[in-house]
Amino acid sequence: MSSIEELYPVECAFCKIAQAYPANDPSSSSSPVPHAPDPEKVFPQCQLLLSTPLVLAVLDIMPIAPGHILLITREHYKKLTDMYPSKAPTLGEWMPILSAALCKATGIEDWNVVQNNGERAAQVVPHVHFHFIPRYQEGRREVARKGNVDMGMLRSWKMFGRGAREELDEDEGAELARVLREALREVLGEEMREGGKSKL
């Protein structure tokens, strides 16, 4: 049995999030989509979208585009090759659900799913995570930021890492997280109505 220090290294930002938002938190509902998680349980603030025994999803604090989501393993693994194969399918099961919720919440039609392994592959946090990056169509306004200020257009041909990254505004992040959680609940409800297996 692994110790808590092995499962969640203290210096790892994503492990701090995993510890702050446990899957079996008695204050949360039985749904993997929390209703109103406290963003100040960690610093910097965390906009939690999803919390399961094996994975979490949060808004990126330095997004390439509004709605940039991170899907994170709850347990600490530096690279995909460090994961136990039995836990890997959970990541794949959540990818289409997060993708559908991202499209529903932002109105995008195109997005990147990116995963980096190691420093030379641009992995900044050494903990397995996937980026879901919305790509707003040319001619379509991106999600308004701070007081409906138009921050310009994002072209769908921009490659990962080429977009300007800026710190996530707390108010903007809170509203976007609320909309994304609502979309996640809708997607999960649709899946259950259509007879798909529940991810709860």
Rank of each mutant, 00 (worst) to 15 (best):
D110T: 15
N24M: 05
V42G: 08
A101Q: 02
Q123S: 10
N117T: 13
H68Y: 02
L91F: 08
F132V: 07
P44A: 05
N112T: 11
M1R: 14
P96T: 03
P32S: 09
M83W: 07
P44W: 01
D25V: 06
I72H: 04
Y8F: 15
C46I: 10
P66N: 08
L80F: 13
M1S: 15
A20G: 02
K104A: 09
A13D: 09
L56A: 06
Q47A: 11
P9Y: 10
Q19F: 00
Y84W: 02
V114H: 05
I72V: 15
A20P: 00
R74I: 07
P66L: 00
V10I: 08
G107W: 01
L98N: 00
A88S: 13
H131R: 06
I64V: 06
S30M: 03
A88R: 09
R120V: 12
L59C: 01
A23M: 02
P26Y: 12
M95W: 02
L102T: 05
H68R: 01
V113F: 11
P85K: 04
P85A: 11
H129K: 01
F14A: 06
L49H: 00
A36I: 07
P34G: 12
N117P: 09
P85Y: 02
P37D: 09
C46H: 00
E40T: 15
L7N: 13
F43H: 15
K104Q: 14
S29G: 15
R74H: 05
D110I: 11
M95R: 03
P32K: 05
P37L: 07
H131M: 11
P85C: 04
L71P: 03
A88Y: 12
P44I: 04
D110W: 07
I4Y: 05
A122D: 15
Y8C: 03
R74Q: 07
P39K: 02
Q19L: 14
C46S: 14
G92L: 11
H35C: 05
E93S: 09
H76R: 04
C46R: 01
D110F: 11
P89S: 05
C46G: 10
V124C: 07
I72F: 09
Q45P: 05
D60F: 00
E109Q: 14
N24T: 13
A122F: 15
H76Y: 10
D38N: 15
I72N: 07
H76P: 04
M95A: 12
R74F: 09
A65K: 01
V128G: 06
V124Y: 03
Q137A: 14
T90W: 01
Q115P: 03
I97R: 08
Q115L: 08
W94Q: 02
L7V: 15
G92F: 12
D25E: 10
W94Y: 14
G107C: 02
V58Q: 03
M83C: 14
H68G: 03
M1F: 10
E109L: 09
K41N: 05
E11T: 13
I61T: 11
P96Y: 00
S27H: 04
A18K: 04
S27P: 01
P26D: 13
M62V: 04
M83I: 08
T73N: 07
V114Q: 05
S51Y: 00
H35N: 14
D82W: 06
L102P: 00
N24Q: 13
C46D: 08
N117C: 13
A23D: 12
W94G: 05
M62Y: 15
E40W: 00
F132M: 11
D25M: 01
P37A: 12
S3T: 15
P22H: 03
